[in-house]
Design a protein around this nucleic acid. Structure first.
Length: 166
DNA sequence: TCCGGAAATC
DNA sequence: GATTTCCGGA
């Protein structure tokens, strides 16, 4: 007996997701079939839950700061994460430790004062997966919270297959 | 609840 | 390298 957590793949991935009016390019969390073939990373997973309404009672975006989210049900998030990684003993204490390691990596930041509230540092996240972006060029619209200004032209829609234009 | 060191694990 | 596990401390 293992833990029936092998499957649960997400093959069909659109070019971008819209969350609360904000666009999420797929390259921001491409976990599957990546050149390095690594395992799913926690922040990828968090983003996954965040993009599905079915988990709104477990984890959801917060109004106000762009990228800020609240874990409404820590135990459930830990269970889901544990299932994905085949770690039945996972709990929020351990998961949050992993989250804390993101502080130095500048992927995540804690919103002090607010319980179970963290904030993504998308400027970092995007550069991590999209190093081609020039730091000196105008700030990506999706980082500013002005989703309506989202420019599809800036995102290579066929980037999943890596070998495309560019 | 949250933090971060240390060691272990994959 | 990215967690997972354990834990003393604030």
């Amino acid at each position: 007996m293992h833990c029936g957590c092998v499957s649960e793949g997400m093959p069909s991935v659109p070019n971008s997701y819209w969350i609360s009016g904000l666009a999420f390019p797929d390259w921001a969390y491409k976990a599957e079939s990546s050149p390095g073939s690594r395992q799913i990373q926690l922040w990828h997973f968090i983003l996954e839950l965040l993009q599905k309404e079915e988990f709104r009672h477990v984890i959801a975006w917060q109004h106000g700061e762009y990228g800020e989210f609240v874990i409404k049900d820590p135990d459930e998030v830990a269970r889901l994460w544990g299932r994905r990684k085949c770690k039945p003993q996972m709990n929020y204490d351990k998961l949050s430790r992993a989250l804390r390691y993101y502080y130095n990596k500048r992927i995540l930041h804690k919103t002090k004062g607010k319980r179970f509230t963290y904030k993504f540092n998308f400027s970092k996240l995007i550069f991590v997966n999209y190093p081609l972006w020039d730091v000196r060029s105008p700030p990506p619209p999706l980082l500013m919270g002005a989703a309506n200004m989202y420019q599809p032209a800036m995102i290579p829609t066929g980037m999943q297959s890596e070998v495309t234009a560019q």
